[in-house]
Amino acid sequence: MERAITAEGLTKRYGSLTALDSVSFAVERGELFGLIGPDGAGKSTLFRLLTTLLAPDAGHAEVDGFDTVKDYRAIRRRVGYMPGRFSLYPDLSVEENLDFFAALFGVRVRDNYDLIAPIYRQIEPFRTRRAGRLSGGMKQKLALCCALIHRPSVLFLDEPTTGVDAVSRNEFWEMLDDLRQRGITTLVSTPYMDEAERCDRIALINTARILGIDSPKGIVARFDEPLYALSGERMYDLLLAARQSPGIRECYTFGETHHLIAEGGFDPVAFLRSLDEKGFQRVALHPIRAGIEDVFMKLMHHGE
């Protein structure tokens, strides 16, 4: 069966700025595919190319088997798109927004109600409230309902969790997981590395280029250097001290610990002893497995 999305050598320039530099990837049917990268990496440009809002300067792409340039009309009938900001009408009520987007695609809300029901039920008590007066989390749910109402074959969600608190973000990913189980292909982008693990496969993207594509597990398996977590008191001083110690290629903050990438010849025992001599107390060091963020940073340095 053909793939849901294929992109080959997609390139987009704005004047002298290259927003997307020869990007290739493919999304299988039914996959929840994550595009992980910071602001300005090119995520939104990629979404606009795939949703036929822009034409590429080079390369080509297909969505649901249709060419994004030649068959753009067919694609527009089939996909659901939720751009960066929640694209709702703040002066229309929850219900009116949903009705409008249904009519836009020539469907009736009740025909596809089963698809949005689990999400819509959470905001239904507020159905007469104007969308502009909903909380961030509720707006996000309504925008998702609106993008789903015509039962799209591929769902494009551009940074749906940006600016939303951790609880709403978590709920949102649970909804995406539910949609995946019902066979909807989703391409979702996020700047939050910790969300990568909720995807089937991810592409790490930075400064217009894809750094790597794999399953979250596969991505972290690419980290082939010894990695340690270092913690103790006076964390900032500890960071500076570790960077000056021999056998350490890199040391950076990582939540409650520092992550430390060792080079060949690193001696943990000697390292701890030297820290003790410098007066650091209750220092703990243990080997750990890399996370997606570790890989991202490593690949970023590769690119430079």
């Binding site: 606009r48 949703t51 036929t52 809002l53 009309r73 527009r76 009938r77 996909v79 798109y81 939720m82 751009p83 960066g84 900001r85 929640f86 694209s87 709702l88 009408y89 703040p90 987007f101 836009l104 695609f105 020539g106 609106c146 993008a147």
Partner: peptide, 13 residues
């Protein structure tokens, strides 16, 4: 400005 134009354009209308 609100981004709704993009959604309208990515529709069959």
């Amino acid at each position: 400005e609100t981004g709704t134009m993009e959604v309208l354009l990515v529709s069959p209308v």
